[in-house]
Design a protein around this nucleic acid. Structure first.
Lengths: 143, 143
DNA sequence: GTGTCAAATGCAATATGGTTGCATTTGACA
DNA sequence: TGTCAAATGCAACCATATTGCATTTGACAC
């Protein structure tokens, strides 16, 4: 246990890449790791109020995380990018659920998209499966 | 065969909904129907140079098509909306392939996403499957 | 500790894709 | 041919993301 709130894991993951361990990277990675669902740029900014974090820096940190396999990015139905901890490989092993009501995105860890056979000449890099509908929370509130 | 270029099908489809048959709707629907892959707003505008078509009108026509089941909308990796002829039902019966190189989107008519079992309380409205990679065309050019 | 320097950051300006409000035009029908 | 709601065009606006550049800072050598 540490006296400060920094997660040694996120800092270590950054250092392991031979990259500079900066407060912005550590904090953003912590937030992603602490969330059970993918976060938008907006949501991350809202959670990082304890910390001075420029919009542009946040974009750059997120891009950096994705480029280095620390996070995965995808785009939801409302055209906003969402990020979650874990590399591409992690997140293509399961499906995502997009709630039409609240707009939240859930990782469905137990649902794995099968890799289908492609037409001649096409090469696959990854498969993603998105399910839309109403999440348990919104279903509860609706009755 | 008609002497003008208007497809009787698109006009008929619009009329069948009890809606007004306007040049903008007919032309946009024709373009979508004539394409073998989903088109972005930009791509449609580029193809409709023969015809005065306001940006906003195009957005509204597209929204109207989607709302009335004449077209399907989805969002690609670059956060741009894409449209193709055919209602939601048509396009959730097959997967889409997004080329990482040229950005084009293909309908994979022969690949059907299986509807998985969801966690308790979640209700599905539709399932979509997106495959990313390199298309046959770009694969050919690369060698 | 202190100096060094590329990497990372902050800020302002810009780009892109899409939406809203409102006045004008037009397709369908009497 | 007149009527009127529906559809359109225009201007202004909004959200998300990116670029260029000057400044700051983490890591490492000393």
């Amino acid at each position: 246990m540490r006296s400060d709130h920094s997660s040694p894991d996120s800092a270590a993951a950054i250092r392991a890449l031979g990259a500079r361990v900066t407060p912005a990277r550590v904090r953003v990675l912590q937030l992603l790791q602490a969330s059970d669902r993918p976060l938008s740029h907006r949501e991350i900014a809202a959670r990082a109020t304890d910390f001075p974090l420029d919009r542009v820096t946040l974009y750059r940190v997120l891009d950096w995380c994705v480029a280095n396999g620390l996070a995965r990015r995808f785009v939801d139905e409302a055209r906003v990018a969402r990020f979650s901890a874990g590399g591409e490989a992690d997140h293509t092993r399961h499906a995502h659920f997009h709630c039409d009501v609240c707009g939240r995105v859930y990782c469905l860890e137990r649902i794995a998209p099968a890799a289908p056979r492609l037409p001649r000449g096409f090469r696959r890099s990854l498969v993603e499966m998105n399910i839309r509908g109403r999440c348990a929370q919104c279903g509860k509130e609706a009755r």
